[in-house]
Amino acid sequence: MVKINVNGQQYELNVDPSTPLLWVLRDNLNLTGTKYGCGISQCGACTVHMNGQAVRSCSIPVSQVEQFKIVTIEGLSEDASHPVQKAWIEEDVPQCGYCQSGQIMTAVTLLENNANPSDEEIDRAMTNICRCGTYQRIRRAIHKVAAKGGE
């Protein structure tokens, strides 16, 4: 049995402890907002928060997150009302949308650690891949959240 805490809920799961957190979220908990992109921590589509830090869930065995609080895109807000989600809508970021859960989760921790990131700081933090090329709009959305003081 593996015990994990996801979006404020405690779960006891009968899974192989070496299973990556990503697949437990998707296949066992049906939290499909977190996406599989590469499986090797390259693309960031699987990004979730582990005690408030952005991590790539495809490369973390579920047994290693038992002590942490996990938050997925579904747990970020009740109704897409997180300032980053609102900015994503206002700046019309998504195209195909597949990578955007991971982009948003990464941006949220960037802004929590740095309320007003420079372009260079955005470059360093936002290493997620978007094949549709929405980067310019992601940058704008992050600046927008900063300008509004995170509201």
Binding site: T32, K35, Y36, I73, E74, L76, Q85, I89, D92, P94
Partner: peptide, 21 residues
């Protein structure tokens, strides 16, 4: 006009085929 598909693409609710159960 803003895209109709943006809201479900910022909260994880958009259904891609890999999300079908």
């Amino acid at each position: 006009k803003k895209r109709l598909d943006t809201p479900p693409k910022v909260d994880g609710s958009a259904v891609f085929s890999i999300d079908v159960r």
